[in-house]
Amino acid sequence: MNIFRLAGDMTHLASVLVLLLKIHTIKSCAGVSLRTQELYAIVFATRYLDIFTSFVSVYNTFMKLVFLGSSFSIVWYMRYHKAVHRTYDREQDTFRHWFLVLPCLVLALLIHEKFTFLEVLWTFSLYLEAVAILPQLVLLQRTRNIDNLTGQYIFLLGGYRGLYILNWIYRYFTEPHFVHWITWIAGLVQTLLYADFFYYYFLRFIGGRGVE
């Protein structure tokens, strides 16, 4: 564990907590894409399949449970909670996210480190996570400005993988044989997809306006 990865995990945790806070306290998911949340639930479900078979640390297992629990709870809230469900913007959240799942699965079947069931699904989760934010970014463009909590959620979610990139650079220089091109490229693509969001988000900080 290094400071970059810890900061990355804490940023990721913060993004999930901000979203749960928004949905649970003000009972609203306005501006939040259910499709992105569904993709993230699939990402965690396929990435943490080894949660019961390979123990790394208490921290690792705890965080996996938090991410699994929170992502599925958010989907449940947005789909079935009567108050929250009413605030979901169904007409605008129309990105065909299932069109993202299949190509990621095919790509995982073609490009992976080992051809085993767990490894292919784990690789699939990496590719899917890289594009999972797309429905949210499209929804953001359609609904124009968004509330602060949703903006902070997206900012933290984009930032965590950027910190992971610093972690991979650090581990590459400090650990022999630490080379994972698939993870690195997927993480880089994921972070680059947030580039224009970060640009407008920082403009907001500088200009003091809402996220246009």
Binding site: R5, D50, V56, S57, N60, K64, F67, E113
Partner: peptide, 10 residues
Amino acid sequence: EANNEKKDEL
């Protein structure tokens, strides 16, 4: 052994 290392990242 690079491939057999545990996946220690989230």
